[in-house]
Design a protein around this nucleic acid. Sequence first.
DNA 1: CGTTTTTTCGGAAACGTTTCCGGAATTAAA
DNA 2: TTTAATTCCGGAAACGTTTCCGAAAAAACG
Lengths: 344, 344
Amino acid sequence: MTAKKVTIEDVARHAGVGIATVSRAINNAEGISAKTRARVLRTIEELGFVPNTSAQSLKIRLTNQIALAVPDIRNAIIPDIAWAVEQAAKAHGYRVVQINTAGNARAELEVVRDIKKLHVDGLIIMPLAYPKTLPDLINKAGLPISVINYGKQLDDSLRADVVCLSMLEGRLVMDHLKQIGRSRIAYAGTQKDVIEDRYLAYERALDRVDASLVYFGDDFSLQTGIRAADYFHGLARMPDAVYAVNDMVAIGLVNRFKELGVNVPEDVAVVGVDNNQWTTISSPQISSVSIMGSEVARLAAELLLKRIREQSREPYEKVQFEPRLIVRESSVAVKRSPMQGGNS
Amino acid sequence: MTAKKVTIEDVARHAGVGIATVSRAINNAEGISAKTRARVLRTIEELGFVPNTSAQSLKIRLTNQIALAVPDIRNAIIPDIAWAVEQAAKAHGYRVVQINTAGNARAELEVVRDIKKLHVDGLIIMPLAYPKTLPDLINKAGLPISVINYGKQLDDSLRADVVCLSMLEGRLVMDHLKQIGRSRIAYAGTQKDVIEDRYLAYERALDRVDASLVYFGDDFSLQTGIRAADYFHGLARMPDAVYAVNDMVAIGLVNRFKELGVNVPEDVAVVGVDNNQWTTISSPQISSVSIMGSEVARLAAELLLKRIREQSREPYEKVQFEPRLIVRESSVAVKRSPMQGGNS
DNA sequence: CGTTTTTTCGGAAACGTTTCCGGAATTAAA
DNA sequence: TTTAATTCCGGAAACGTTTCCGAAAAAACG
């Protein structure tokens, strides 16, 4: 009953017009009188005609789709990013194809190498692994690409729009921790090169990094935070502050510290990154850097859609957002118990 | 430099074969010798030929895409669902188009009404608003549909595969709360008809519902939980247990109760639904019902892809998962302070 | 080596649109 | 009323594949 595909020709015949006219009616193009348009639209309604998108795409050479490649839709701010991209796309009549790379280098390369197979007009990619050949592939992709960059300094010559957070992100945290009088500042994150900027900022802010105060876990999860807390707790001299690569890790840290009888922020201050809603629920509430995922994502989408629309090449936009540090309970300045001394 | 589209004809000419042969090589169809296939593949490589997906879809009448329509990718278990669907789809060579309906009735109707415009071979929809005409539209959609149903009892005649959680979900919670000796059990959720099953189970489990013990908020957020806690705290007689529509609400409740000096679980027990990772981080840890989003989503995807592959109609699958209650600190049985009496 | 069977291949017809281009119909100008 | 300008419309040629069908080539068989 239902199926029985009705084509533009059926409509044309049924309405007593040519197929060109029907097409004009669909796309409200000009060169058609108001009354015939009305008549055609009516029969379209009657017959339940729906234009075949494949045929349209074939002819128009546009698919009205963009791809969004993220590491893992389940993580941290990525749902916010996906939401923002979808909203922006929808506003322009575009659909979004979701791709999870799992932070896998091969997957990240594959998505840009095979972008042509994706049936999309452009790509927004948020890399995590940043494989070395990624820039090359982006440069020769042949389709517009926007990069959401939270990890690594990218070459300005990259033939893509890039939206990112300035490196200030890490500076903010480190300055703040120093300012409240902490000197043994630790870092808890994933592998050093995964969200490179955050770790580099940590290094840069210190005269000398004490390797024992750096904990690299496997991922961004609560578990990593918990393990990091255990690790720091086991040290001969504990840190008096921890800069966590993101809020999940920070929350894991804080909760585990609590269980271990370590007071936050009195004994150890903790600051995370992402400023997600859980930071305000945790107790103590957790200081965090807002990285404005929604804004970044929306801009990335707007830039991409603009480039698609205008078929433009150079110049490519390189936008940096400025992060903001939100100070909460986990890193307020407190009179500290006279332990092994605060700042020298 | 980059663009310059190369078609199957270019490959054919360049390799000295017919276009049919090239096509056979691409799809490793038969009717082509090993050596010519090799030669063709080589020139494909050389020329950097990528088959035009629009043309393929037009001919094949399959797009290798499915749509996933959820209320809001940022909420609760939906990222898990999106992840699971994408994984299953990828395993079958399918891409996923993400659509957020915002729990909006019109958006939910629109996505199934205009499914033909979506350039997909099928749809997985997770309704929230459940507009009355949705089943009708699903029945006449003309494309395979799987429903992920967490909200409402659906007619068995629905022409779609349906995966859901049995109503046991609410029963589990209520039985548990009664068993640990609670009698003034409250409900905190969104509008009554939004996740109908959960509220209905609440009603069903009680001889008589005390309207003052039911709090309907605007959404599933932490905020709703916080407001609910304030509301219950303001009552002449507080409840001694709260069944929260999901974990976010439960966490909001627990944290607000803590601030108000209400002890959980001594004064009030709290149980949520979703069993997300935060339930174990919150203190006290929160009892929750595991609704197995990933499993449900994966099955929904598998059923859809199977139906697409086999072009089959009836019979449609109706699968119910059995939820499991995980009891944590927020609802353990405790000797309670002799306040206004426990169970009569 | 002739004949039949099997395999490999190419031409051409779809698939369902959009759009160019020329002709018909309508309106405006003379 | 005739001519010029404008608007409206239909035919047909793309767009880049897949696939049917028949021909050619190769393999198998006597």
